[in-house]
Amino acid sequence: MTEILRVENLAKSYGTFEAVKGISFTVREGEMKALIGPNGAGKSTCFNMLTGQIRPTRGEVFLDGARITGLPPRVIWRRGVGRTFQITGTYQSMTVIENVQMALISHNRRVFSLFGRARALYRTEALALLDRAGMADQAERPCSVLAYGDLKKLELAIALAHRPRLLLMDEPTAGMAPSARIALMQLTAEIVAEEGLSVLFTEHDMDVVFAHAHHIMVLNRGELIADGNAAEVRANPQVQEVYLGGGMLFKEIDHA
């Protein structure tokens, strides 16, 4: 398998505090890779550096061998990286399908069209995407009335609109009921298998992680302490300390 994302020595400092301390890893084509770690480990910071929301202090990010470090989010998106957020950011004043149409409009570079009805554009494609995410029956509902789990599904449909090669999902199942979590990740896994895209996701629910991730990385206080398959990560003593020796961890955080 060829690698699609390569991260080299990526770091972010806020004043004297180093949120991410020079991590390196790769994501290979067609794999689902999880980035896990306790609260405050730097997962979201790391994601935001990969997709351009935050500019790294040092280090490089390569997509398919091309350097994308520090590029704005919209440029990275155009290069074929999709993204969902921990706190969903859908357009509240639009319907479900219009949210997807917006992504399609942008993908087809029609944002600056002053004429023509946006509602009529790319409807078929949008419906197909919603269908893929199990949201077709809610296409015409206002986004503002959706249940949280459905918003997450909608985000997935939106993120798939420009046929990304790499999809970054920040806490895709946070705040969902356990059964819905499994269902959403099952769906994601199917899409990954069919479309051949790669997924990097952060997650708190270890059931979800161990059920769906091909490879798992563990981040703790800005440092990558493990990177391997489920068995390797389970056996890693440092990971065991972070996750099982929780008492230790909390004590140290209290001192800090």
């Binding site: 929301q53 950011g89 859908t90 917006m102 942008s106």
Partner: peptide, 12 residues
């Protein structure tokens, strides 16, 4: 509605 989301879908 959400500048962050719009930027993250290629809209300047």
């Amino acid at each position: 509605d959400s500048a962050r989301q719009a930027e993250a879908m290629g809209i300047d």
